[in-house]
């Protein structure tokens, strides 16, 4: 009886050691993988997700890496990331400079997604927010140099809404106008047509993730002129209009 008890104790001991060994080595591997997962969440800025893609951390929990969106993209702009590309392996993406989203009205990529990683409630492609175009370089943009390029403006599927041309005086000549391509974040889908079309060797306008492209006012900011419009009257009653006084010598 005592002998059997000893064997049982030895077996239990062995079992515990085996379990500890497995748990230890697997935890080590898991830690490495967890760190790698953290890195994979940082998407390179030129990598754009298909329309309707959920925000990056959520997307990586939802995407099944099946490539159905890639298959159903009629323009073959989507691809699945491969190991060594700094994007989570097997997830769909496109690079605007290589080929922009053509903004199909029926959004076949979203329809193909079985998991909802591409949000099926996106039914109007103009409401897609893949990123935000930013005229990043004012020094090389031809319109900023006073020339009439505006290819980005013409390539934009929402021209005059997502990109407008804002007229300014050209200070170099003081005679001519500059037409500054200006992106409006409430309209831009981030399709990348402008970036793809930019005639420069390296594009001056590029689609960036919204979190990198967009500023945000402090929550306490009130724009006086808008508050006044809302109120329909001056915000402070009876503001004194002081007389403009000029220096004596100019009289």
């Amino acid at each position: 009886m005592a002998g059997r008890g000893k064997i049982r104790a030895a077996t239990r001991r062995q079992f515990l050691f085996d379990a500890a060994r497995s748990a230890g080595s697997v935890t080590l591997v898991g830690t490495g993988l967890a760190l790698h997962t953290g890195q994979a969440k940082a998407l390179p800025p030129e990598v754009i997700r298909p329309p309707g893609a959920r925000a990056e951390p959520e997307f990586l929990g939802a995407c099944l890496r099946c490539g159905m969106c890639v298959r159903d993209c009629p323009y073959h702009i989507l691809d699945l990331a491969k190991l060594g590309q700094n994007t989570a392996v097997g997830t769909p993406y496109f690079v605007a400079r290589g080929g922009p989203c053509e903004m199909c009205v029926d959004i076949p990529c979203v329809k193909a997604c079985p998991s909802g990683a591409l949000d099926p409630t996106l039914t109007d492609i103009n409401r897609a927010r893949m990123g935000l175009a930013v005229l990043a370089d004012h020094e090389t943009c031809l319109n900023f140099l006073g020339l009439r390029c505006e290819v980005c403006y013409r390539a934009c599927p929402l021209s005059d809404k997502a990109i407008t041309l804002e007229q300014q005086q050209n200070p170099r000549s003081s005679l001519h106008a500059m037409f500054i391509p200006t992106v409006h974040s409430d309209q831009c889908t981030g399709c990348g047509k402008c970036e793809h079309a930019c005639v420069l060797e390296t594009t001056a306008i590029r689609v960036l993730p919204r979190r990198l492209a967009k500023g945000e006012l402090g929550g306490h900011y009130r724009l006086g002129w808008e508050e006044q419009k809302k109120a329909g009257k001056p915000l402070i009653e009876g503001v004194m209009d002081l007389p403009d006084r000029m220096p004596e010598t100019t009289k």
Binding site: L33, A34, T37, G38, G61, V89, G90
Partner: peptide
């Protein structure tokens, strides 16, 4: 890992 990271880690 999926629970902790909110991501399908193993697929990496």
């Amino acid at each position: 890992l999926a629970l902790i990271t909110g991501s399908i880690s193993w697929e990496l």
